[in-house]
Every structure is written in C-alpha cells, then in structure tokens.
Amino acid sequence: MKLEANLITGRTAYQGSYLEYKTSPRYFEECAYCELNPEDLSQLGVSEGECLKVSNEHGEVIVRAKMNSGNPRGLAFIPMGPWANAIVDPDTRGCGMPGFKGVPSQIEKSDKEPLDLKSLMRTYCQ
C-alpha cells in the first residue's frame, strides 16, 4: 500500500535547538521523521515510531512515522535537514531556490531503519 502525498519541509523548534549539535542523537530524533495525518497513517497500517519509506523521482529516505492531526490528509511534513533533503526537488527553476515544499511523493511502510547522519552523508561520497 502506497500513499500519494505532497511533501513539505520546514523548521521546528526542536530541530533548530540541535542545529549546532548535529552529531547528537537528539538531532537525529528531531529530524528523521515524517508527520502525517492519523487517518493517512492508519491507512498505511503504520503506528507512530514505525518506519516509513518516502520516495519520489529525486530519491528515497527512511524516516520514522509521526502523527499530526494538524496536517490535512495527503500532506507530509519532514523537518528541514539531511533526511528531508534526500528527497526534495533540487531544481531551482531559474530562481535559485530548490523545491523544499510541494514535492509529490509516495509513502509506504518500511522494515528498514533510518540512516544516521554519518551514514547518510557517506552515501553522497560514493
């Protein structure tokens, strides 16, 4: 079962407070998740803390599932950071700014665990 979702990314206070401590486990916890509406989550058969694979034409990433009833259905939020940016749209469409918000993506349940920061960054060096 896959969910078609519109992905947005952005600041949270908790992500921000570990901005200058990215090697800490707390930074990982505060960034490597995806918020979905409760109904979307139950449709995917996923409960909070379980893992999701979020993928699109730009790549894929594994993050933990989080519930947010403030999200309308079909809207996925991942805090700004390396996990979100693994799948945002790099194209700036001629104005300098990549597509950090409004990226059509597919979301499904995953058995894999999210990569930690170092491992994630290592994938760029290959």
Binding site: K22, T23, N85, I87, P90, F100, M121, Y124
Partner: peptide, 30 residues
C-alpha cells in the same frame, strides 16, 4: 551538507572543500 538538496550535496562532495565552523555537522563529513 544538511540543507541543500541531494543533487547539490553530491556535487559538493566531489570537489575539494574547506569548512570553517565551530561544530561538526553534515558538511564536515564532506
């Protein structure tokens, strides 16, 4: 390293890079 889209990070990883920062972060890895 943490705040660019993946394609841009890949390009950054390929070139010699100097980092000036107080803290170890995603860019340090590259």
């Amino acid at each position: 390293g943490a705040h660019f889209a993946q394609e841009a990070v890949r390009c950054l990883a390929k070139v010699p890079m100097i980092q000036i920062d107080p803290y170890h972060n995603a860019t340090t890895e590259l």
